[in-house]
Each structure stands twice: as structure tokens, then as C-alpha cells.
Write a protein that binds this DNA or RNA. Sequence first.
DNA 1: CTCCTACAATATGTATACAATGGTGATTAA
DNA 2: TTAATCACCATTGTATACATATTGTAGGAG
Lengths: 249, 249
Amino acid sequence: MEQDKNLVDEAENKARPRRMGKNGDGAERHEVIYRSISDAIIEQQLRPGARLREDALTEVFNISRTGIRKILQRLALEQLVTLTPRRGASVTRPTASEARDVFAARQMVECGLMPEVARRITAQDVSELREMAQREREALKTGEQSTAIKLSATFHERLAQLSGNATLAAFVGQLCSRSSLILAVYGSAGHLGCESHDHDDLIDYLTEGDGEKARAFMNHHLEEIEASLSIIEEEAVAPDLHQIFGMNS
Amino acid sequence: MEQDKNLVDEAENKARPRRMGKNGDGAERHEVIYRSISDAIIEQQLRPGARLREDALTEVFNISRTGIRKILQRLALEQLVTLTPRRGASVTRPTASEARDVFAARQMVECGLMPEVARRITAQDVSELREMAQREREALKTGEQSTAIKLSATFHERLAQLSGNATLAAFVGQLCSRSSLILAVYGSAGHLGCESHDHDDLIDYLTEGDGEKARAFMNHHLEEIEASLSIIEEEAVAPDLHQIFGMNS
DNA sequence: CTCCTACAATATGTATACAATGGTGATTAA
DNA sequence: TTAATCACCATTGTATACATATTGTAGGAG
């Protein structure tokens, strides 16, 4: 049930509860745990709405609540988890409004970045991207949905990094992560995210150095993804009685 | 020596170490403290490089280290403070590269938002913006540098909020905060940020509903700000010895 | 006189104990 | 049998104690 990647060593470490105050690996350990949770969310192994109890995470990762809280806060700032004041943490269930905002933001930023990417891309970058697209296509073909989703997000993020603007690249990374959540909530079962050949076509345009064509294609690409969703308010979680009954006092 | 606002009661409260576990105001208290520190940084009362010792903040705000650490982490994620592993927190000193990235991001996002803002702006929004611009001009005239900087950042952020895209608005807010730091490091003494009449001109274009003109003007506006800076590597704080001496082991 | 070493002070990293709150289930009365 | 109230449990919020690392300084030896 639980992913058994680095969870197995937790069993044998259980015996020594000595606090490893030494920071030497502490920071890296936190980073690893953060990435584990983040990946699990992006790969939709943790679906929106799933609760993330601090105690459970404490046991799973063999870390103190302090560390977990730090990580959860970071995830909350990135909008991947929602921290309800007395209820704890849960995987964020994006609202329809947030979903639209995220895709509008991606339209603006990712498309706007394409010309610069086309200008700066190197042969090495191209081959790296091609390999990623290849792996993504294989994952799609073999039905590895989780892997495909993660690879797609990574592809878009890597693309943004090629622009050389770290700030915008980090922003795109966040948007892509949130997009995974949006797909999980508003996506249909069969269609998941990017078409298999789209990314390859995009690489073609970038290789040709045609920034404008790449921008137009990215625009189309994102529109297609958004169109494949059914972004309607579900209103299942927070019925918002005030709005329904119109009495606000 | 120490400010005597709420420190005095601490003396007599020393006797009762009862932790006020009641969260009722806890969250708001954190929010207030966060905003206090954030504002102090944006208004350049805390200059880049200034150290933020946890103990000192603990005393000043009469809060435990746990709460302070939470706030500092949030500020760190927004890139306003830098958390060095064993050295503690300090106000971020943006690198030249970061400065360029931030302004490039603002160019893309803020300009891209203008058409939508022009489409959605209401008369009430206009009057609010006019008032902000008025106050900013007054602050500039009377030499209240801190206030002017804060108002300018708030103006740009408010503008982005009018687009209706909360995600992009929050991003612009972060970029504006970081811009204040950039101005503090790379700005010249006399010239600080936006020209006094620029914002009024921008409001004119938006009132006319001319999104394209507003976009072009914003583009010019931001270019002017960036041009007034001298963005060169100072390399004073973190000399990056590895890169300088090339020996990494 | 200079350099190396050791110690102390300062400040952060981590963990745990305690408090408070919200939900759930049980018990009782109508 | 159903509904309401109360109590307990699960879970988080907060604070503090302890461990660790870094820095600066002083003292002694060469």
C-alpha cells in the first residue's frame, strides 16, 4: 500500500530513538522527505483531500514533529497542502477559480518564456528534453499514470529553467505541481495531461530556434489541456452556506 | 534600551510561565508579527544583510522561538530573508542575477496583466488607485522614503489583484517585495523606484480602457526603474571561495 | 612576536512535554 | 426509537529543554 522506497530503513532505525542533532544530514534528510511527499502528491498517489496526520508522517519518516511541521508548512506555502487551523494538513483540493488562475498563469509565463528558451537552448538541452519526452511517452503507453504525470510536470519545469530566469522557473515549477492536483480533481479518467506527441513537436520548434512558433504551440498545448478538464465548482467540501442562503450575519 | 512596549509586562509575567496555548489570537498574532517584519524589510528599515536573531525577535515580539522560526521560514520562502544553516536568519541581499530575474519576471507578468486589468477595472478601483498614487506622491515630496517605497510596492500589487487572478497577483506581490530589497542594494541614493507621476499616467490609460497602451507604459515604467539601478555583482557578503579559487576539495 | 590551540560564549537544530480544541461515540431521557 | 448532551479521545498549537556547531578570544609555546 505505502510506497516502500526509503521506508524500509525506518524499521531498523526504530530501535535507536537518539535524536540526531547533527545537522550534517539533517537538511538533506528534510529535503528528501519533502521531495517524497511532494512527489507523492504530484504523482497523485496522495489524492486531493487526503489527510496528512503529523503523527503518521512522524512514524513513516522517523522524524520528529518539528521537522514534519516545517515540511508541511513549506508544502502549504506552495499550495500543495492545505493547513486548516485545528484540523491539520491535507492535500489541497484546488477550487475551480484556482484552477483557472493556474492555467491562465501558465499561459502567460510559459508561453512568454518560449522565445527566450528558443534563443538559449543548446544541443545538450535538446537531447535531454527528447529523452524526457521519450520516457513520458513510454510511461503513457504502458499505463504508468503516476510516472507520466510526474514526467510531464518535470518537462514543463525543465523547459522553463532553460530560459535562465530562476525566479520564473521556480514559479512555473509551482504551477506545474498545482496543475497535477487540478488534473486529479477536474480531469477525466482517460485523458491525462499532455498529448504524447505534443512535447516532441514543441522540441522541434525550439530546435529550429523558432520562438514564436514554439510560443504559439505552447499556447495551443495548454489550451488543449485546460479544455480537456471539466472545471466546474464541485462545492462538495465547503458548502459555503453563507453564499447559498445569502444571509451573512 | 529595549523598547518598552510589551516588554514590561514580561517582567511581571515572568512569574507565570503559563503558555498561552489558546490559539484564538495566536494565528492573528503570527500574522501581525509576520507583517511587521515583512514591512520593516520592504520599507528598508531592515537593510539587506541585517541579521535577525531568533532570541532578539523572541524578546521584541514576546513570542516563543517556535513561532519566530515559523515566521522566518515563511519569509525565507518568499526570499525576503536568507536562512543560513548554522548562522541564522538575515535579510536577503539579492544577487545581480536575481535582480535581473525579478525585473524580467515583473516585465512579463505585470505587463501581461494590464489588458485584463483595463478590462475589469471599475470606477471604485480607479479612485482607490488614485488615492494611493496621491499618498505616494506626498510621501515622495516630504521625503518619507520608507512610506513611499511601501506604497509603491502596494500599488503594483493592488494593480495585479485587479486582474482577478489571485495566483499571479500573489506572485507579483512577492516580486514587488523583492524589488524593494533590490532597490536597497542596487539603487542610487536620490532616485528611488517609481517616478512620481508615472502611476497617475498609468491609471489614466487604464481608465480609458486602453489595455495595450497601459501595457506599453508599464513596460516603459519598469524599464526605467531597472535602468536607474546599477546592477553589478558586489560579491561582498558571500565571496563564494570555491568559485574564486577553483579548488573544491 | 607570532601562531596554534583550546575554551567559552552565542545561537541554532531537534525533540518532547503540555495545553487546548474539535469531533466522535456513548448514555440517557422523551 | 430517536435525539440531545456529555465526556473522552484524537490531533494540533505552543513552549521549553537539550544537543550541536560556529565564532571569537585568550593563553601558552616556539
